[in-house]
Amino acid sequence: MRVRALAVRIVNQFLRDKRTLALLFLAPLLILSLMKLVFGGQAISPVIGIIDAPAALTDKFEQLNAEAEIVLYDNYDIAKAALQAGELDAVLQAGSGIPELMLEGSDPSVNRAILLLVQNATRIEGGHNAPVVNYLHGGPDLAPFDAFGPVLIGFFSFFFVFLLAGVSFLRERTSGTLERLLATPIRRSEIVAGYLAGFGIFTLLQATLIAWYSVHVLGLHMAGSIGSMLLINVLLSLTALTLGTLLSSFASSEFQIIQFIPIVIVPQAFFSGLFNLDAMNPWLQKLSLIMPLTYGADAMQGIMLRGEGWSDLQLDVYVLIGFSVLFALMNVVALKKHRRM
């Protein structure tokens, strides 16, 4: 009898909380759909630039029915520039003598695919002409973790700061301290700025610790400067902070903050570069443009794998700052719900 009463109570509570109910049924579907989109598309097809290609070799590529796009170049420098710009995944110099293969190198899975393909093609062509392999970034020792580690660093700073900021701002509301705070002459913008400053100190510490640990303890491949890495990590955390406090206005309990994870956090993980999106429908790929983590992860990978400097990073930096400012302003407006001046 008591068991029944308890079960009925739980059913009633669930029926009252429409959002939780929706989450229970819809969130798994959402995440499964995302996984299908990311993993279920056609295979990744690398782009290989070939210089001085003998007709025999290009024919071999055709014959292999290779899942690769071949671009022909006459000039090594132009091909190299395309490789540096990220338009090519590899450049094969195939004139007379031993072929030379230059890999872009920042994605180990792409590296492997190209190596296999080129080895097959050159083997059929002429006995033991194994190509000499060079790497533009990274090297043969680059492990998968070196490639997605930078994304994970960004992801986890974002994730934890988002949760922490969301919950503490929510507490301010549920404990009544926000009401009391708003009964003082403080401006709404001052509240948002204060939160930014207070949490900013901890996000800076967090970013420093994470950067140091992943480079010096875990030994992640690090081509760029630790200063830029810190900058990106702090900016990403500030975005998470402003987004977390903003969204906490739309949650009435800690439980409902947790519910934002599958809606806000998980899709960003899928789109941010943890998985290769080349296999995904191009217009779906565009979704990644509205996700802050995309820019943070792109910058982190750029710094750690390719040693990118300011000129490559500045767009990501501006976009992240833009997100933070936008969320902070929206938060100032959202506070109007509690005090209309």
Partner: peptide
């Protein structure tokens, strides 16, 4: 808001 003191029903501490 500077001129009055407000104590709400919840302790708000």
């Amino acid at each position: 808001l500077q001129t009055f003191g407000y104590m709400a029903q919840s302790d708000a501490l």
